[in-house]
Design a protein around this nucleic acid. Structure first.
Length: 255
DNA sequence: ATGGCTTCATAGTGAAGA
């Protein structure tokens, strides 16, 4: 089972690339973040044509998440019941007997902003949400744009980023709390080359210089850890004309 | 190097992303 996550930074703009990627890689599940579209214009028909069901929680201008899957999703829920939020950042569904949680964690803007406090509260809500979800569904994958680079090896220039939003100690502590629920960063279950990232700034030749961060993740529950056989980042779409600033991240499960 | 790009928004002197 191939499971992937991709922050597309506008599904309206990126739909052709998403369809192309689905055709090439044939994932069983693809979680999308930053749709930036309302539900009424979600491209249901184009995706069905491509062989994918979709469940989604969009909104105007910002945010928005979706789960695409070859098999029909069941028990779809949007939002976190324990954390009321006007922003559409969470969607969960069961596919092939695995609970999929897809999130777009708040960016936080800067450590001294209100948005940073919202991010930390949100992550606390996510921890509680996942604790319950894991109790209900031992076989669980949580994926998405976490907007956290877990360690300095996930940062192109740790010195320059030190203390900054996306790498700050409280954010990393929140990340560690998520793992403590019984989740593993699938990427780090395997030997990986150094300097692999999932996001690069549009500005200042960020991608060409590999000035990136690894902030998009797929976490597998303890019950699935032994079944995870591969985890990687596909940089190819980042090289296309008019790319998202994020690359898709992928993990593969057997059985 | 506090900008550099891209998106959606509106028509800003923009806001937000990461």
């Amino acid at each position: 089972m191939k499971i992937a996550s991709w922050n597309v930074n506008s599904l309206k703009v990126r739909l052709p690339q998403v369809l192309q990627w689905l055709a090439e890689h044939q994932p069983d599940v693809l979680g999308l973040q930053e749709l930036k579209i309302e539900n009424k214009v979600f491209p249901v028909d184009e995706l069905l044509e491509a062989g994918y069901h979709a469940c989604f929680a969009g909104q105007k201008t910002y945010n928005g998440v979706a789960i695409l899957s070859k098999n029909k999703p069941t028990d779809v829920t949007i939002q976190m019941a324990n954390f009321p939020d006007e922003q559409q950042r969470v969607i969960s569904a069961t596919i092939n007997d695995i609970r999929i949680v897809n999130v777009y964690v708040p960016n936080g803007q800067s450590v001294d902003s209100d948005k940073y406090q919202y991010k930390l509260s949100w992550l606390s809500g996510l921890r509680d949400y996942l604790k319950q979800a894991l109790a209900d569904h031992p076989k669980l994958v949580i994926m998405g744009d976490f907007n956290i680079a877990p360690t300095d090896s996930d940062v192109h220039d740790p010195k320059a980023w030190e203390g900054n939003v996306l790498v700050s100690e409280p954010e990393r502590a929140a990340w560690t709390e998520l793992l403590a629920l019984g989740l593993s960063d699938s990427f780090r279950l395997f030997e990986q080359d150094p300097k692999l990232y999932s996001w690069w700034d549009y500005r200042n030749l960020g991608f060409r210089r590999n000035h990136g961060l690894r902030i998009d993740h797929l976490l597998v529950s303890d019950a699935l850890r032994e079944k995870c056989v591969k985890s990687y980042i596909d940089k190819a779409p980042r090289k296309l004309e008019r790319p998202s600033d994020h690359a898709p991240v992928v993990c593969e499960l057997i059985g």
